[in-house]
């Protein structure tokens, strides 16, 4: 039973986030940031971007977060004149109003149950969601739990572009949830269809099928970005 003892007496290695920022390398791929005064080379990145996530507006290059699929073509180390990338975990944005408007608040701050539905995910977002239970992240300490049944769920977390054959199971899961409920779309596919949608077999993201409250873009968004969004829904996000 050595594995058991090693596990139990291994000490606490959990991140201090959200109390303190997490700076370990490799916890996030980063996210491109709008360039206010873009040079010519940066403007040419809009032609390289495969999903039109980068658009020119005046002399700036704007980033449409939902469309970014992390192809890395505008990243430092790849592009000759890259955009600036940010490495904080606050990737989420609300679909209407502010992030604070989407919060459940009240008792949900201490206990919030999440049902994950895979609506055509490639496995990367699901893997990152799995790591929320990792001792290094441990979302249980924040009062967030994954539940197998939608009837006990407060948040419907959807990954994938919503394929035609997952549309009805997804809707059924949503219908089965009690009020109040929130829908959280995780990843580029769920946000905008990503590289797959809209197409003959996929919707262009969860918003085509369900009313979405919060979106976390990225391909895939790292565990901390997902935790940040879940905390925002619970109403206890770090400010």
């Amino acid at each position: 039973m050595n594995w058991f003892l090693r596990g139990v007496f291994g000490g606490i290695r959990t991140t201090r986030y959200p109390k303190k920022p997490e700076t370990t390398p490799g916890t996030t791929p980063g996210f491109p940031v709008r360039a206010e005064h873009a040079d010519a080379q940066q403007r040419s990145l809009t032609l390289v971007c495969p999903t039109s996530a980068l658009v020119e507006s005046g002399d700036a290059v704007d980033v449409r977060d939902d469309r970014c699929v992390h192809c890395m073509r505008c990243a430092p180390g790849v592009a000759p004149s890259p955009l600036t990338w940010r490495y904080d975990p606050q990737w989420a944005h609300a679909t209407r109003g502010t992030i604070e408007d989407a919060a459940l608040g009240g008792t949900f701050r201490r206990s919030m149950h999440v049902r994950v539905v895979d609506a055509g995910d490639c496995g990367a977002c699901l893997s990152e969601i799995l790591h929320l239970n990792d001792p290094l992240y441990n979302m249980h300490r924040l009062g967030i739990f994954i539940t197998p049944t939608p009837r006990q769920a407060d948040v419907l977390l959807v990954v994938g572009p919503v394929t035609e054959q997952m549309r009805l199971p997804l809707l059924e899961a949503y219908e089965a949830m009690p009020e109040p409920k929130r829908v959280l779309a995780i990843g580029a596919c769920a946000a905008s269809g990503g590289v797959f949608g809209p197409s003959f077999t996929s919707a262009g993201g969860v918003a085509d099928v369900l009313p979405v409250d919060l979106v976390v873009p990225g391909c895939p968004p790292p565990p901390l970005a997902i935790i940040d969004a879940l905390l925002a829904l619970a109403g206890s996000r770090a400010r």
């Binding site: 290695r13 490799g26 996030t28 073509r73 990792d134």
Partner: peptide, 24 residues
């Protein structure tokens, strides 16, 4: 324990290649 070790591998990928799942 294994989940934690897997996360260490993911971080190693992220640190050297810029993406945890080696996209791009």
């Amino acid at each position: 324990r294994l989940l934690e070790l897997e996360e260490r591998l993911l971080r190693a990928c992220g640190a050297v290649a810029g993406h945890r799942y080696l996209f791009g």
